[in-house]
Design a protein around this nucleic acid. Structure first.
Length: 436
RNA sequence: GGCCCCGUCGUCCAGAGGCCUAGGACGCUGGGUUUUCAACCCAGAAACGCCGGUUCGAAUCCGGUCGGGGCUGCCA
């Protein structure tokens, strides 16, 4: 069994293509088959090396690898259609010679018989039948001698011995043309599978009009490749038992093209975001810290200082529990960075009370003489002082939170103070008290 | 217009004639926990597009209808 994905490098890899690649990959891996990636760049004007690079890079990022094709090589050259124009031209001319195609204003059209019909079994759609009277003679070689998609794709699928073609439903109506070509070339017709399309929230084919749907954009939003992989699996397929979060190996073990739904799925990022949060929480603590620090550095566009890393390390376990994407990090940990510090005025006004101010002053004094600035000591000190002043937790803790983190929304208070350290905490308290 | 595909909660999926007073997840609403925000726990609202037929029995099979979508390029 041999499957393929044949992206056209006319744009960055988008989520629809990634999902088609994923299903092909899963099916190949599930059946010990071969997975091939080739580049369908017959549209030389719109194709670019930048896009080829992007496609390769993002397949890898998602954990999709291939056994044959672009970059990894194989018995058929470089797996780029732009390098095989001679081959396609030769085929087109041979078809003309056999009277199966003819010239038309410089281009070559395939001669479609007016009678009969083409039938085939589609894995997701069952028996398909197209009347040939509805199929026009289609161009296989343009007047500039470059091949059209129909020719190049079909010739490649034959030459590379593809056994199962799983592609988007948008090409379903072109399939009779491809089968006709294969028969004209005396090739075996592979098994077809037309996967449901991915729609945008408006119920139309996912495209640029739905905003940036490139895999890149999700990477930049701080999504984990594992989460995106998992989420894409669920668009048109489920492994059973209502299981939704699962590993790559589990997906491979359970995957079957026969079980893919025929109806289109709307790509809605809400659940993807939730799933990403689940994955973030499941990362090993140390691995999380490592990627968190990298993300912060890239968002800050600078390297972190030793002291910052020291502080961040302390807060990370708490932060890991409250992230949806890696990009949500900065607002949570900003108060620990050597960056300009501001107190949100609105937040401050909503927590500022005379009792609260007194509380701030007294914990400041107590902190000054606290020898071991440990988490438990901090908590005990702050709770004791609350009791001594007979204040509700909210009154004392919220004003302390705003004073120290700058906002009402932050990681847990004691952890935040502990992470900031004694000096930092005293400085923040001093600053707010003096500005009262 | 023509050809084709599709139709279960707002969304993703379960359901392959009786297990369905239709299940899970996200989201939403209410509650619990709580110093904030999350996380977590509990509860709730929420769907078989419609009409016929087959059958003792249909979300499941058939027909029609309506609705949505795709293709209809010397793009793929």
């Amino acid at each position: 069994m041999k499957l393929r994905i044949a992206p056209s490098p006319t744009g960055f890899l988008h989520i629809g293509n990634a999902r088609t690649a994923l299903f092909n990959w899963l099916y190949a891996r599930a059946n010990n088959g071969t997975f091939l990636v080739r580049i369908d760049d017959t549209d030389t004007l719109r194709s670019s090396d930048e896009y080829i690079k992007d496609i390769i890079q993002n397949f890898k990022w998602l954990g999709i690898d291939w056994d044959e094709g672009i970059e990894v090589g194989g018995p058929h050259g470089e797996y780029k259609q732009s390098l095989r124009f001679d081959r396609y031209r030769e085929i087109a001319e041979s078809l003309v010679a056999k009277d199966l195609a003819y010239e038309d204003e410089g281009a070559i059209r395939f001669k479609v018989p007016n009678e009969n019909s083409v039938t085939f079994e589609d894995i997701t759609r069952g028996s398909m039948k197209f009347e040939l009277a509805d199929v026009e003679d289609f161009i296989i070689l343009r007047s500039d001698k470059s091949p059209t998609y129909h020719l190049a794709s079909t010739v490649d699928d034959i030459d590379y011995e593809i056994t199962t073609i799983a592609r988007g439903e948008d090409i379903l109506s072109s399939t009779p043309k491809h089968i006709l070509l294969m028969q004209a070339l005396n090739a075996d017709v592979p098994t077809f599978c037309h996967l449901p399309l991915l729609f945008g929230p408006d119920g139309k084919k996912l495209s640029k009009r739905h905003g940036d749907t490139s895999v890149n954009s999700f990477k930049e939003k701080g999504l984990l490749p594992e989460a995106l992989f998992n989420y894409m699996c669920l668009l048109g397929w489920a492994p059973g038992d209502d299981l939704e979060i699962f590993s790559k190996d589990f997906a491979i073990e359970k995957f079957d093209l026969n079980k893919v739904l025929p109806n289109p799925a709307i790509f809605d990022t809400t659940k993807l975001l939730w799933m990403n949060g689940q994955y973030i929480r499941n990362i090993e603590k140390d691995d999380f810290i490592e990627s968190a620090l990298l993300t912060i550095e890239s968002n800050l566009d600078r390297e972190l200082f030793e002291k910052e890393i020291y502080r961040l390390n302390k807060i990370m376990p708490s932060v890991q529990e409250r992230l949806e994407t890696l990009n949500d990090l900065i607002p949570q940990v900003k108060f620990l960075l050597d960056e300009p510090f501001y107190i949100n005025e609105e937040d401050w006004n909503s927590v500022n009370t005379p009792e609260g101010q007194e509380y701030l002053s007294s914990i400041r004094e107590k902190f000054k003489t606290l020898n071991e600035f440990s988490l438990t000591n901090i908590e005990n000190l702050m709770r004791d002082e609350l009791k001594a002043k007979e204040l509700k937790p909210k009154v004392g803790f919220q004003i302390a939170r705003v004073s120290i983190t700058g906002t009402k929304i932050s990681p847990p208070l004691f952890e935040s103070i502990y992470a900031l350290g004694k000096e930092g905490t005293l400085a923040r308290l001093a600053e707010t008290i003096e500005n009262l």
